[in-house]
C-alpha cells in the first residue's frame, strides 16, 4: 500500500525552544484513518502542523504526499496544500466572507470554474445540513455550525489527505456526530486518508483505524 506520510527520526521544535517531538518514526498508508492522541501539550497539534508544512522538521525527514518537507519550496508547499483538507478546532473561517465563499475557497485555489464550484458548495451545504444557512457569515452561526462549514471546506476539493485538529473539541453532540460521520464517509467512500488529533476516540466510529499516542516527545502505535 502507498504511504501518504513517512517520518524518519523526525524531531520538531519551535525556534529556540526545547524539542517537542523527538526522533519519531511512523508512516501512514494511503486511505487509512489515523488517530493521534496524547495529553495536553504533548505535541499533537505541533505534529499536525508539520504535516502541512507550517513547521519545518528540526531533524530527520518528513515526506507528505511525496513532498519532502525538510527543504520544500513555497510553490511546492502550495501544491501539496492544494491536495490537503484541514480542519481546526477554532475553525479558521474568513469572517468577512459568506459561508458559501469559505467553502468555495479551496475550489477557487484549485482553479475550478465558478459555476462548478457553486454546485459543489450547494451539495456540501446540504451534506453538512446547512443549506438553510447559505449566504450567511460565519459569525452568524453557532460553533457547531461553523465547524461543519470548516468540514465542508476541507472536503470541497476531494483532497487526498484530511488533517483535523480536535475537530469536535467544543461542539455539541449533534455537530460532533455529524463531523465524525463526514470524516468516516470521506475515508470510506472517497478513500481519503484522514488524520485526526484528538483527546478521545469516539466509540461509535464504524471504521478501521490506526492509533498513535504521543508521550514525552515520542510517538508509539497503540494496538
Amino acid at each position: 500500500m502507498d504511504k501518504v506520510i513517512i517520518a524518519k527520526d523526525l524531531s520538531l521544535s519551535y525556534s529556540n525552544s526545547e524539542t517537542i517531538i523527538n526522533k519519531a518514526n511512523f508512516s501512514v498508508d494511503s486511505g487509512s484513518f489515523v488517530f493521534i492522541t496524547g495529553a495536553s501539550g504533548s505535541g499533537k497539534s505541533t505534529l499536525l502542523k508539520s504535516l502541512f508544512g507550517a513547521l519545518k522538521p528540526k531533524q530527520g525527514s518528513l515526506v507528505v504526499g511525496g513532498v519532502e518537507l525538510n527543504s520544500v519550496s513555497r510553490s511546492k508547499l502550495n501544491f501539496l496544500r492544494r491536495h490537503i483538507g484541514i480542519v481546526f478546532q477554532d475553525y479558521k473561517l474568513v469572517k468577512e466572507w459568506s459561508i458559501d465563499k469559505n467553502i468555495m475557497l479551496p475550489l477557487i485555489i484549485n482553479g475550478y470554474v465558478k459555476s462548478v464550484a457553486q454546485n459543489q458548495v450547494d451539495k456540501l451545504l446540504k451534506h453538512v445540513r446547512l443549506n438553510h444557512q447559505a449566504g450567511k457569515h460565519p459569525l452568524e452561526l453557532s460553533g457547531g455550525e461553523q465547524q461543519r462549514v470548516a468540514m465542508a471546506r476541507a472536503l470541497a476539493h476531494n483532497p487526498i489527505l484530511i488533517l483535523a485538529d480536535e475537530p469536535t473539541g467544543n461542539l455539541d453532540e449533534y455537530s460532533s456526530e455529524l463531523i465524525w460521520k463526514l470524516l468516516e464517509g470521506a475515508n470510506e467512500q472517497l478513500k481519503t486518508t484522514v488524520i485526526v488529533v484528538t483527546h478521545n476516540i469516539p466509540q461509535t466510529l464504524n471504521v478501521d483505524y490506526k492509533h498513535y499516542h504521543i508521550e514525552y516527545g515520542s510517538i508509539h502505535e497503540v494496538n
Binding site: 502550495n78 501544491f79 496544500r81 484541514i86 479558521k92 469572517k95 466572507w97 475557497l105 479551496p106
Partner: peptide, 16 residues
Amino acid sequence: NERMSIMGLFGAALWL
C-alpha cells in the same frame, strides 16, 4: 493577515 493565512493554508499562491 488572517484571511491571507487561511488562504495560504489551502495553498493559494501569493498573487491570489
